[in-house]
């Protein structure tokens, strides 16, 4: 189900195949946070991974960064640039060559991500020293340039994180994420808690930084933010990617093909504003068949069997859903 685009070079920036993550709980139970995820990301591409809170999005991101807790078990592979498997790489490799250098992380709550007791300038300079070979006398200039790249105002460089508004803290975090010039940007809920204008500015900036040379994986529950910048959409439900689609087809015509994705869009206040009945299943107690069945208007006995992702959608009745 690779959606190769003409801008994709030989090896995709990121190729995730059969990625699963489960957490071993006390008493031997498992929480299956991510099940069998497949997707690829080429340079110049922006993929938005959407879904409600708790569906496994952030666990997937942590898996790519090698930041899973000790009780996690993974399967599958996640090839970065065709040469390094993020799932089997050791911590030293991840710390020295991947995080910051090959994957730039734009965090969920920038204020919490920045070190509270140090100024933005000193954090930028430290990251410049760590990640680039900039000679000592040039570090200061490089840090100023890094701030400028993320539109962080130079006259705020000597402030501490708590002296920044949410928008400026977000830019400071983005500036840090860009220093290593990583080919993959990973943004986990980069707009939570920001107001609409700031959401738009933040995602526009992420898109701009992606340009033609990087790839962006944006994790979000904000469908409007996803619609604004994504080339492709992946919808996650109960740990599974249930639909992958071209963003324009998804938000416009012909619309989502998976009943959950359709329900999610219809819940928007600019659409029908009707919720999907019920709540997602517990990840510790997933059914054998389609996890959406108890909430699905199109469910039939066929849905007791797990639907595979075929042609971008994991649903036994995807076409009917689209026509309905």
């Amino acid at each position: 189900m690779t959606t190769a685009t003409d801008t994709t070079p030989a090896a995709p920036v990121l190729s995730v195949q059969g990625l699963s993550v489960r957490f071993r709980m006390r008493g031997g139970a498992f929480v299956r946070a991510v099940s069998d995820a497949h997707f690829e990301l080429g340079s110049g591409e922006c993929l938005a991974l959407v879904g409600e809170s708790g569906c496994g999005k952030s666990v997937l991101a942590s898996a790519l960064l090698g930041l899973l807790p000790g009780n996690a078990e993974t399967a599958g592979s996640a090839l970065l640039g065709g040469d390094i498997d993020l799932l089997s790489a050791d911590e030293q490799t991840l710390a020295r060559t991947v995080r910051g250098r090959r994957i730039g992380l734009v965090p969920q709550s920038p204020a919490a991500h920045l070190t509270p007791v140090r100024t933005v300038r000193s954090q930028l300079e430290e990251t410049v020293r760590e990640l680039t070979g900039t000679p000592k006398p040039d570090v200061r200039k490089a840090a100023v340039a890094a701030a400028e790249r993320a539109a962080f105002p130079a006259d705020h460089l000597d402030r501490h994180p708590h002296e920044l508004s949410g928008g400026l803290a977000q830019r400071a975090a983005t500036a840090l994420a860009l220093i290593g010039d990583a080919p993959l940007l990973l943004a986990d809920e980069p707009t939570t808690g920001l107001d609409r204008d700031l959401v738009e500015r933040t995602v526009d900036e992420l898109k701009r930084h992606t340009g033609d040379t990087r790839a962006l994986l944006m994790i979000t529950h904000d469908l409007a933010a996803a619609e604004r910048i994504a080339d492709r959409i992946a919808v996650m439900y109960a740990g599974r990617i249930v639909e992958q689609a071209d963003a324009r087809a998804f938000f416009g015509e012909p619309g989502p093909r998976h009943p959950y994705a359709r329900g999610l869009l219809n819940a928007l206040p600019e659409r029908e504003f009707t919720p999907i009945p019920g709540m997602p299943p517990e990840l510790a107690d997933l059914p054998a068949g389609c996890a959406f069945a108890p909430r699905c208007p199109s469910a039939t006995p066929a849905c007791e069997e797990l639907p595979l992702l075929v042609d971008g959608v994991a649903c036994h009745h995807a076409l009917e859903a689209q026509r309905a």
Binding site: G51, E52, S53, T192, G193, H221, L223, G263, L264, L265, A267, L268, P269, F273, T274, P275, I276
Partner: peptide, 14 residues
């Protein structure tokens, strides 16, 4: 509802 997905938002408003 600022932290919530579209469906949970619609459900709580309802």
């Amino acid at each position: 509802t600022a932290m919530l997905d579209a469906s949970t938002t619609a459900a709580l408003v309802a």
